[in-house]
Nucleic acid binder design. Structure first.
Lengths: 201, 201
DNA sequence: TGCTGTCAATACGCTTGCGTATGGAGTGCG
DNA sequence: CGCACTCCATACGCAAGCGTATTGACAGCA
């Protein structure tokens, strides 16, 4: 672990073309590809080409393709993911926290693209448990905040589910149908409407 | 067309095992498989096995796999699909119509399963245009009803998008994560909450 | 009966993608 | 120097899936 960290630091210098890869490099590249072209596109040979090596390298780091997927998802869950909620937690007022959560969420694309890709691969045995865990955590978090914002527990559960469904649905509609994409202003208007409709008070 | 319709009528009789297949049979079987296991599972040989024949048969009816997908989706769009809106249209009061639309939609599973499968394959060149057409039609319809229910056009557009996102998101969350499925009663409660939140008045 | 059109079986070639086996190149270190 | 460890290339086997080519079975009809 200390070894890899040192390697990481050094790698910042000779970034452009470096010869020897670590498992991390494969995981990161896998997430990148996943965000762009979906889980199915994460193929060993394809990834290897991207990294300028061959599969001979891959199978030294990972025993199987699924092992890579699993490691990559773990990385995603640990980093991209926990940050989202942690950042929102800093705002005291729950109503304002929800507003900010929505606005923040409506910006940074990368993690969302990955989540969208995972949604489309929810039948994959490695992906399914991750998705279930992440989604349920988020819904539960939303429910807690709705309670803090003054809703009854039952209503808060429903509203959390409704809210999260809205998020998931939006990902599908927006990220897939690239044609009917909203302009930046129109999108802000839409988010405003969503907030007014779903956030109490 | 009259020929095929007659054939359809006759086929009801000798359903269990019939020797010679039509293009229709393949399309219907494809939709069935799609609903159960997704677009990717619609493979020529797999389908053939299901129908008790081999691919030799398939390639007589269709020139390619994509041709089958396309024909099957056309069938889905023409039948399963247009009925949904048509049925709702019979209710005068727009608010009640929305309520009923939600309730109806929350029942019949088959067409939803297909739509969910298509969502996960929205990058497929044959699937994409169908999805875009269907989704936009439905959103536009919702927007019209919201206007009839008294909303301002801009708000109605937003609310329609929000509502449809909720639907799409629900499909993902409910149909995929089979574990955390709601009981029938809890589901009715949830639909009630959704209606109260999204339908004006 | 024989012809023709319709549907189907079989065999083949091709591509993609996974996983294995094996040998080789570079580096650190004793 | 030479050994060992790490990372990588190459070559191979194998399965799934698409599409083609060819032949066969059966029905209707002249």
């Amino acid at each position: 672990m200390t070894n890899t960290e040192l390697a990481e630091v050094e790698s910042v210098a000779d970034k452009p073309e470096r010869q020897r890869l670590s498992a991390q490099d494969w995981e990161i590249a896998a997430l990148e590809l996943m965000a762009e072209e979906g889980v199915a596109a994460v193929a060993v040979e394809s990834l290897a080409r991207r990294l300028g090596v061959t599969k001979g390298s891959f199978y030294w780091h990972f025993s199987t393709r699924d092992a890579l997927i699993e490691a990559a998802l773990k990385r995603w869950e640990d980093t991209d993911n926990h940050n989202t909620i942690a950042r929102a937690e800093q705002i005291e007022n729950p109503t304002r926290r929800l507003r900010e959560l929505f606005r923040q969420t409506s910006r940074e694309m990368r993690s969302h693209k990955i989540y969208a890709a995972l949604l489309k691969a929810a039948d994959h045995p490695v992906v399914a448990p991750v998705m279930e865990r992440v989604s349920n955590e988020r819904i539960a978090y939303l429910a807690r905040v709705f309670v803090q914002a003054g809703m009854q527990p039952v209503d808060a559960d429903h509203r959390a589910r409704l809210t999260y469904s809205t998020y998931v649905g939006f990902l599908q509609l927006a990220l897939q149908f690239r044609a009917s994409r909203l302009s930046s202003d129109a999108f802000d208007d839409y988010v405003g409407h969503v907030i007014d409709t779903l956030v109490p008070n």
